[in-house]
Design a protein around this nucleic acid. Sequence first.
RNA 1: GGAGAGGUGGCUGAGUGGUCGAAAGCACGUCUUUGCUAAAGACGCGACCGGGUAAAACUGGUCCGCAGGUUCGAAUCCUGUCCUCUCCGCCA
Length: 413
Amino acid sequence: MLDRKFILANPDAVKENCARRGVSCDADRLIDLERMRAEKLVEAQELNRQANQVSQSIGKARDAADREELVTRGRQLREQKDAAQSAHDELESQVLELLRTLPNLTHPDAPVGGEDDAVELARGKTPIRTFDFQPKDHLELGQLHDLFDFEAGSRVAGAGFYFLKNSAVLLDLALQHYAVRFLTAHGFTPVTTPDLALTEILHGTGFTPRGPETQIYSIENTSLNLVATAEITLGGMMAGQTLECERLPLRLCGLSHCFRTEAGAAGRASKGLYRVHQFTKVEMFAFTEPDQSDAMHQEMLALECELFDNLEIPYRVIDTASGDLGGPAYRKFDLEAWMPGRGDDGQWGEVTSTSNCTDYQARRLNVRGKQTGQKGTHLLHTLNGTAIATGRAMIAILENHQNADGTVTIPTV
RNA sequence: GGAGAGGUGGCUGAGUGGUCGAAAGCACGUCUUUGCUAAAGACGCGACCGGGUAAAACUGGUCCGCAGGUUCGAAUCCUGUCCUCUCCGCCA
């Protein structure tokens, strides 16, 4: 969520930002409603103050007749206050509804436009390999080594699910271990997180479960949802907490399963492990002071690059354009790995994504920082970044490191 | 899953309808004295949302797990719910 005061003070900036992101928003209506809400709040508070005053005098009143009169007066004031309060609550929910549709502000350096306007910032250390044989895709390699069972996956859980088998299981575990070990050495606290989270937490992190086009699986008859990423649980981990600023930034790396319905993805190139309903991911997450978040974003990007450089996988770094940013992201960098088996003769495929969400999530989650010995608190910034999503990383490893005889030489890290 | 107990400020912990945002202690901060890897004393010390101000001062409201209810008035009474602890059962 954006700051209401900021919206009131900068309506044009908000509208311009929405336009840049390709999001329709009714900022004028939001501003009108918010002004009305603020007036109602003052009115309700004033009536409440008067009622409190009367209630106090009742406690001191000795005379029965006086008392009776005051009680009547108090009752009237409470009724008026209740009316003002419910008017306020109604306006508040309308404001919130509109507020939820507004995306975060956008980093001034983020490219403007849609998917095609993304800017390539850099390439990884490993050059794209020229094969002197026809490279296989990961499915063919998987078949050769009996690594995946998609048919059994569909039997058990439906299309989009799979079993990993044999060396794929070891590779999956090795990648998780590699990422966790790497990040721990870089100051991240490793955690395993719940794979389910309450709807409230999903909202706080900017996800919308239970909508018509939701990417989130929900558990019937509960307020629980399967998480789409550990970003949800890691952000929620500190919901409602006030952290000591001296200990920031707080770096976490979370290991979780990720579940995605991939609604609307039918028909897109989705063979194999690339687009599936469940995968395993090691995720970076950080809570920082507002003036630290840009640097932390660069830090996460650099770590992602190092992780994939070590795996000797060619990739490019993408600065995502404004129209392609998710609601909470202020800026987003993606690593796209070269996947020789994708498409006819290879394609870039997204393997990591790191976002600076500034205070957008923290406001909803109410995560604050406090300087020891000083009054007051302030909202923190949150950032997230993929360390390794094992499924897509495996595609890149298998396809890039395959040999002419179908064997695969996996780099040692 | 069954039975019981409990959830109060950073922590411990009083408080069973009005003067309670809440005693006391600890911790913390500022200052004073003595002095040096310590002691004593004074004062202060929650958060959020408003009004107000250049900023303060000042001021209103809300918050005693959460959500409702009763009442002029709720930390206190009622209902629901979540969580924690103890005992039992079950289980990886």
